[in-house]
Computed example of a mutant assay.
Amino acid sequence: MKVRLENLTKRWGSIYAVRDINLTVDDGEFVAFLGPSGCGKTTTLLLIAGIYKPTTGRILFDERMMNQVPPKNRNVGMVFQSYALYPHMTVYENLVFPMKLKRVSTAEMKERAQRVADMLGIAHLLDRRPGQLSGGQQQRVALGRALTKQPDLLLFDEPLSNLDARLRLSMRAEIKRLQIEMGITAIYVTHDQVEAMTMADRIAVMKDGMLQAFCSPDELYERPPTLFIAGFVGNPPMNFIEVEVVQRDGVYHAQRPGFDLPLLPERGAQAAGRGRVILGIRPEDVAIADEGIAGEVYVVEPLGRDDLIDVRIGDTHVHVLADPTLNLRLGDPVTLRFNPKKIQLFDPETERSLLWT
């Protein structure tokens, strides 16, 4: 099922929770709503589910206007952060409860519940109650309950937040696999950029109730359109350095005290003459090399496969991912090489990228 939002706005009094959201989720697509707490992503999800009604704008399912359609008639399956299982019911009773409301026959209820339980690996738990299950098992039951409805649209509201790191990893893979196998359109709300990047076909980044970008994970990572997105997406986060771009002898340079970096012509030309700009580059795109910009090791943070090195260059700092076998120590002199193809430049006033606008 295709979902289209047109100028979707939700307001309480003078406070905007969501403002002028325009996007289309294609049939069978997995889309993540990503952003910090309070950005409006869950409100948008609840508007799609019909739990909230929009102040203005339209919600369309396959070109059918849904603004006034009650939640029970939208054929939407929803998985919550809190699982929201009925504690007095068994797993089987939780799975079939949505079908009872739709007056599905007993035989079909049993068949659907068994099929979904087998698919999720919870068939041996059908006689237990939620209080007898682990967090991961409860999450599978909550997902199974949504799937037994045979929904046209699956909505997830931060469903993995209560799980430990290892279980989150396996559940991410499980949810994505099921969504692909069943071909159901899915919208997934999360503040975790790793979840969004690994699971979604496209990501809608939100901030202050407004849509910042809607594109593929690769594009979001490689070509961030705003300073906010550049800093929010990626771990470790992107380095930001305030510079001025000037041209000398036909070559563009990003410079500040103790820092002078040659730029590719297509990048430098967009920023030259603007005065102060923000240069961004990810830690993995900076290398410790034999020549480049000189600095001094300020902090070493072991991450296992890599060390995250904080290098002081003049009065600024740059984070670098380095091989632990280099055995760098505080105060060691190092030289940094920046990948010129990965450098981003942003206007500090508008916070928009100077490269892709």
Rank of each mutant, 00 (worst) to 15 (best):
P324G: 00
P324A: 00
T325V: 02
T325F: 07
T325Y: 11
T325E: 10
T325W: 01
L326W: 11
L326C: 03
N327G: 02
N327M: 03
N327A: 12
N327I: 09
N327C: 04
L328P: 12
L328Q: 01
L328K: 05
L328S: 11
R329L: 08
L330N: 14
L330Y: 14
G331Q: 04
G331N: 06
D332G: 03
D332N: 05
D332M: 07
D332Y: 13
P333Q: 04
P333Y: 12
P333T: 05
P333C: 06
V334F: 05
V334L: 05
V334Y: 03
T335S: 10
T335N: 03
T335L: 12
T335C: 11
L336Q: 05
L336G: 06
R337C: 04
R337L: 00
R337H: 00
F338W: 08
F338Y: 08
N339G: 00
N339C: 08
N339Y: 04
N339I: 06
N339R: 01
N339D: 15
P340Q: 01
P340E: 10
P340V: 00
P340H: 05
P340G: 12
P340T: 12
K341D: 15
K341V: 06
K341I: 05
K341R: 15
K341T: 13
K342H: 14
K342G: 07
K342N: 13
K342P: 13
K342D: 07
K342Q: 14
I343Q: 04
I343D: 06
I343C: 02
Q344I: 09
Q344S: 10
L345H: 12
L345T: 07
L345A: 01
L345W: 05
L345Q: 00
L345S: 01
F346L: 02
F346C: 06
F346T: 08
F346H: 08
F346N: 03
F346D: 00
D347K: 15
D347Y: 14
P348W: 13
P348K: 11
E349M: 13
E349H: 14
E349F: 03
T350R: 07
T350V: 07
E351D: 02
E351T: 15
E351L: 09
E351C: 08
R352M: 10
R352G: 09
R352P: 05
R352E: 10
R352N: 05
R352W: 02
S353A: 09
S353T: 12
S353Q: 06
S353W: 11
L354I: 09
L354H: 04
L354C: 07
L354R: 04
L355G: 07
L355C: 12
L355V: 08
L355F: 12
L355T: 13
W356Y: 15
W356L: 07
W356Q: 06
T357E: 15
T357W: 08
T357L: 14
T357G: 15
T357H: 14
